[in-house]
Design a protein around this nucleic acid. Structure first.
Lengths: 165, 165
DNA sequence: CAATTTAGTCTCTTTATGCAACCATTTTCG
DNA sequence: CGAAAATGGTTGCATAAAGAGACTAAATTG
């Protein structure tokens, strides 16, 4: 049986438990493009119906999508992004920008997301401090958070000692 | 056979082709924590060895990790992040921040990534324009990029007409 | 209200993942 | 240096997930 990450004391693992299945992020990409109906997801993605059913259900269960009844002579559903789902824009953007740079390469971007005011592409996401200054990896440190398990505390300490976080 | 995304005219799909397998992002998480040896990945993750072998090889093939020979009496490898791999920090951060907010919840963060200068957590990644102003979804528009296929051009146009990108 | 489209479910085959045993090299240590 | 132990895998088998397509109930269209 496939290992589950839902017990892990790590936010990335928790995120993957919700988003990590094959197809899931492409379903969400479609939702960002405005797709709402089962059939439209299926046609655009070429995903099998049984898998799509499972993925939509999983995302609804976890609160990323909401099932909205739009039926006129009975019940009929559409799937729309919740605030939790819309907040994945940063994740999708980070992934897209990374692949634009390293996989497809500059000058070969399939789409551009632009600022309407200037018409120019939205700049890359960057880690900045509270003062707005750019942060380099060396300027950051990892610390156990309020939800850290003992194992997490030990790991963070060990990594810090090796100076390689 | 599982569908491959490598022919899709979409950077997110391309990213998933490299990073989308089960376990892959946790392998990269470990690499960010400074893990370099096969055995250490295996022990920390509890992943099976054959799958770990496949994942490390895949990441090396795609340029995310580099295999470095550190043998003293023969050849022995370590796996380290390349610049392409290090550039995934934004992706990992976006995922972590999203899950911190929506899955584990504020006040339950397993780890905190802090600015050394202030000791305070690094702020959330945000989409900003070239002028540094915060961008809302409504202020952005999607356009076909230089690498857009005909299908992509058509999709972007259709989505724009529906005003729901 | 009959025909067609939509949104699934069910079954079967193929592929991916997990587990455990096994093996070659590399490192450790007397 | 050389034997023992640790490291870094590979191989084979069991199980779970994904793909394809037939089938169905409900909703929409005309």
């Amino acid at each position: 049986m496939r290992r589950r990450f839902d017990k892990e004391n790590c936010s990335v693992a928790q995120a993957l438990e919700v988003l990590g299945d094959w197809w899931t992020l492409l379903v969400i990409r479609e939702a960002f493009f405005g797709v709402r109906r089962f059939g439209e997801f299926q046609a655009n993605l070429g995903i099998s119906k049984n898998v799509l059913t499972q993925r939509l259900g999983h995302l609804v269960d976890h609160g990323v999508l909401a099932q909205v009844d739009v039926g006129e002579h009975g019940t009929h559903y559409e799937y729309v992004l919740t605030p939790m789902g819309k907040d994945l824009l940063a994740v999708m953007t980070a992934l897209r920008q990374w692949a634009d740079r390293w996989v497809v390469g500059p000058g070969h971007e399939p789409i551009l997301v632009c600022d309407r005011r200037t018409g120019r592409p939205v700049p890359r996401l960057q880690l900045r401090g509270e003062d707005g200054e750019l942060l380099r990896a060396a300027q950051m440190e990892v610390r156990p958070g309020p939800g850290a398990s003992k194992a997490t505390v030990a790991r963070v300490r060990r990594a810090a000692m090796q100076g390689r976080v």
